[in-house]
Design a protein around this nucleic acid. Sequence first.
DNA 1: GCCATGACCAAATGTTTGTTCGGTACCATG
DNA 2: CATGGTACCGAACAAACATTTGGTCATGGC
Lengths: 209, 209
Amino acid sequence: MVVAKSREQGGKREGGRTPSRADRREQLLAVAAELFATRGYAGTTTRDIAEAAGILAGSIYHHFPSKEALLDEILRTFLTRLYDRFAGVERQGGDPREALINLIKISFSCIHDTPHAVAVYQNESDNLAGEKGFAYVADYSLRIEQIWLRVMTAGQTSGVVRPDLDVKLAYLFIRDAVWSSVRWYRAKGPLQSDNVADQYLKLLYGGLG
Amino acid sequence: MVVAKSREQGGKREGGRTPSRADRREQLLAVAAELFATRGYAGTTTRDIAEAAGILAGSIYHHFPSKEALLDEILRTFLTRLYDRFAGVERQGGDPREALINLIKISFSCIHDTPHAVAVYQNESDNLAGEKGFAYVADYSLRIEQIWLRVMTAGQTSGVVRPDLDVKLAYLFIRDAVWSSVRWYRAKGPLQSDNVADQYLKLLYGGLG
DNA sequence: GCCATGACCAAATGTTTGTTCGGTACCATG
DNA sequence: CATGGTACCGAACAAACATTTGGTCATGGC
């Protein structure tokens, strides 16, 4: 006969109280995002995730159908939110220079708020390019790129962006410099998100020399 | 009794001739670098590497002691070469502005020549931070950063870099924008390495607006 | 032309992987 | 106080993994 141990051992959280179903789901997503971000998706095992959440690996499957489903929800939540915020800037209209500044500030604030999701997106989106269930990742990336290109091109015609720049290249440089900061930016560090954004805007608009 | 098949099947390369030991080693390193770059180290199996090289997985171990040894040699070769070239710029001295331009041009040319090694370094170096045998990765990264910071600081005192910039932050932005281009730069594409470098320097020195 | 060397194959190793499943203890509801 | 639903455990699963081993066959030096 098999006797299960008490759930007191590891199954409870938040001061001994059993977390609600919704809380456990969020906890698993948060824990998975952090592990995917630091060790990579392929380098993270379901046992790693479970241990970090205080349960056993098999119990994950009461909340998610697979390890991949965790990655999917992390990326989907991140991308929809990011796209909505970017689209809001464009919908709002106004000065292209202000719009571009807003796009950049949103990016940095997104890194500040959800660094793990950003890192997962950056590290895994390339590998997911051909995967069937992850086509939406490339879709959102393209739509986001189009927003940026429209804003920057508008900036060129309105005179706040130099006309001799290759807009696509400039976008790629700006995008990479901004998003890559997730690797060294620490929310608890001395540099706050706004300062980093300001410094980057200063470099971008004033130039290096 | 066990009978091994002829080696004709997959063990030969280069028009049917058996590659030399040195050639096979180089081939395995090249193939592993490409796979590590596109699928990640953890996402690449020894069978993947072997198949791409036309041999069986076990045969890899006649050339390398482990899968990790492949990663090690890829990173070590890349980092020593890169560091040497950067150090050469600093040793040469001269105008800080010229030196900084050279650092950037070397970076882009390095991406052009060995994109896979660059990608592997970018994707895996963070995960290797604590690993015993890979301490040299962080060492080289630090030494390279110090070269850049010295050059940029020299540029500040000599007046070619604005004094109100946070040099460390500016370095991080430049570094990330430059190295991240490995994700979209294609050596065979219309944009050649020099053009990309020029465009980036134009953006960097002239500013966006 | 013979033979030793070594590059490779074929097969098996033990471990780790994602996932499944039957049972158990907790909790809310009556 | 009974009871049903469910969140989780404990154990198992097959598949995939990096690595080991022993045998085989081509090749280059004699």
